[in-house]
Each structure stands twice: as structure tokens, then as C-alpha cells.
């Protein structure tokens, strides 16, 4: 089957019920997307499918042919950071960092839809993403900051 990930086409030969998460990590080698729970409880595996934040541990690859998949590697790189990633660095959000790919993907999706989110919007959108280290206050601040930067263009 063919998957479109970060604007590149990959041919994969795998059981169609395999979760996208494990195809990304083990077959394609995109390790930025993390495994945390496997049951849609932590958000560490968040990617975008056709622009929407989705839990890749819950998506069967067989259903994704023709969809545009974006992972953390597709939103920005150390050399070319996205506005959200830049805000994450400015606010020094990460501790262990393990949840942060998922947090950034979720926040990016939120900001694509709503470039001036209120605290409540952030609560609604981000509360499915667990951070065991407790970086939530900085996540909130970074999202507000990225929103301001995006509005300024």
C-alpha cells in the first residue's frame, strides 16, 4: 500500500490493521512520534491526518491510503523551526521531552483552526495529551505566544 507522509510517498508492505504509530516508527523509521499508552489516553502518538490531530495508535494503516499524514518531522526541523516549535523553545517547555512531539502536533492543529485560542480553548484541545513531568503551565504559555506570533504573521 502507499502512504503519504510529510509530502513523501512510501510503499509499505504490512498487515492493513497495523496501527499507523508502529508503521511510522518501525517500518518507516520516523521515531519522533511516540508510543505512550496504545489506547488513546496519552496523546504521545499524535499526528495530523488531512490537517486534523489524530492518535496514530488508533488508526489502521489500511484506512489511510490517499490521506495526507504529517508527523513532528514534517512540521519543522532543528534548522527550520515552526512557530509552535520556536515558542516551545522560547518557553523552555520540555523536561523529559517524551510527550512533546504529541503536544506540539496537538497545539499546531489547534492553532491551524483557531489562531487566537482562549485558555478554555486550550483546555479543551490539549487535555487529552498527558505530560507526566507536568509541563502544562509552559505549554499554555507557549501556545499563547505562538498564537500572537502567528497573528503578527
Amino acid at each position: 500500500m502507499q502512504l503519504t507522509i510529510n509530502n513523501k510517498i512510501y510503499d509499505v508492505d504490512i498487515e492493513p490493521d497495523t496501527p499507523l504509530l508502529w508503521v511510522l516508527r518501525d517500518e518507516i523509521g520516523l521515531k519522533g512520534t511516540k508510543y505512550g499508552c496504545g489506547i488513546a489516553q496519552c496523546g504521545a502518538c499524535t499526528v495530523h491526518v488531512d490537517g486534523e490531530a489524530q492518535r496514530s495508535c488508533q488508526l489502521e494503516v489500511g484506512d489511510l491510503e490517499g490521506s495526507a499524514i504529517t508527523t513532528i518531522e514534517g512540521v519543522g526541523t532543528p534548522e527550520a523551526l515552526s512557530a509552535v516549535q520556536q515558542a516551545w523553545i522560547t518557553h523552555q517547555v520540555a523536561q523529559c521531552g517524551y510527550c512533546q512531539s504529541g503536544q506540539i502536533m496537538q497545539a499546531t492543529a489547534l492553532l491551524m483552526e483557531n489562531n487566537a485560542p482562549t485558555d478554555e480553548d486550550i483546555d479543551d484541545s490539549m487535555s487529552g495529551n498527558l505530560c507526566r513531568c507536568g509541563t502544562y503551565p509552559r505549554i499554555r504559555a507557549a501556545i499563547h505566544d505562538a498564537a500572537t506570533k502567528l497573528q503578527e504573521g
Partner: peptide, 21 residues
Amino acid sequence: MKRDDILGKSTGTQTYTIDLE
């Protein structure tokens, strides 16, 4: 200080045991 690991941890490029090959 800007933590040395902050760039990797904001771009999905920091590797952990679970990522090693």
C-alpha cells in the same frame, strides 16, 4: 540558560532507548 536538550526535545529528534536501532 537554554537547555542543551531543548532543541531535540522540541523537534522530535531527541532519541530515547525506545527509539534506538
